[in-house]
């Protein structure tokens, strides 16, 4: 258990207010908006390329677009560039599919030192695993609600 929050602890927590710099919320939000938007713009450009040059339907063009973004993100993670970008972009780099690819590629790279089975295999989803688990759980409940609405 944590330390008992006695008088001394409460007094110190009150004392700390204003004595620690807070995260620059507004600046971070603006950066996230711009860089997240930029990633999506690149994605859109790739999709338009598939639609107009290779004559894919808009729906089918989505899959290779995501694949290219994931590939780019994994490559930039490997080159040690993506984390530098993410430090600036914050949520702007974490929310799009590129952030998910970075989480998996970074964990895989990190644990290569422990071998391919117990290292890469076991730890690859260390950071991204929670997204998958709760993504599936959320999808189940959304699907359940949808089923109830359409069949009842």
């Amino acid at each position: 258990m944590s330390v008992q929050m006695g008088e001394e602890q409460k007094r110190y927590q009150a004392f700390l207010k204003g004595r620690q710099p807070s995260r620059p919320w507004l600046l971070n939000s603006i950066r996230a908006f711009l860089s997240g938007g930029a990633i999506c713009l690149i994605g859109q450009a790739i999709q338009e390329t598939f639609v107009h040059i290779y004559h894919y339907s808009e729906q089918i063009a989505g899959n290779p677009t995501v694949a290219i973004l994931i590939l780019l993100s994994a490559l930039f993670t490997g080159f040690g560039v993506y984390d530098v970008f993410a430090r600036y972009a914050g949520a702007g780099s974490a929310v799009p599919v590129t952030g998910f690819a970075n989480a998996i590629a970074a964990a895989a790279l990190e644990h290569k030192a422990e071998g391919y089975i117990v290292g890469v295999g076991t730890n690859m989803f260390k950071v991204a695993g929670a997204v998958i688990v709760y993504g599936v759980v959320a999808a189940f409940f959304v699907g359940l609600v949808r089923y109830l609405f359409t069949h009842i």
Partner: peptide, 16 residues
């Protein structure tokens, strides 16, 4: 890698 994230993982850290 022990206390925080994989070294190449992109995370924004607070100023503290």
């Amino acid at each position: 890698r022990m206390f925080r994230f994989p070294t190449e993982y992109g995370a924004q850290k607070p100023p503290t």
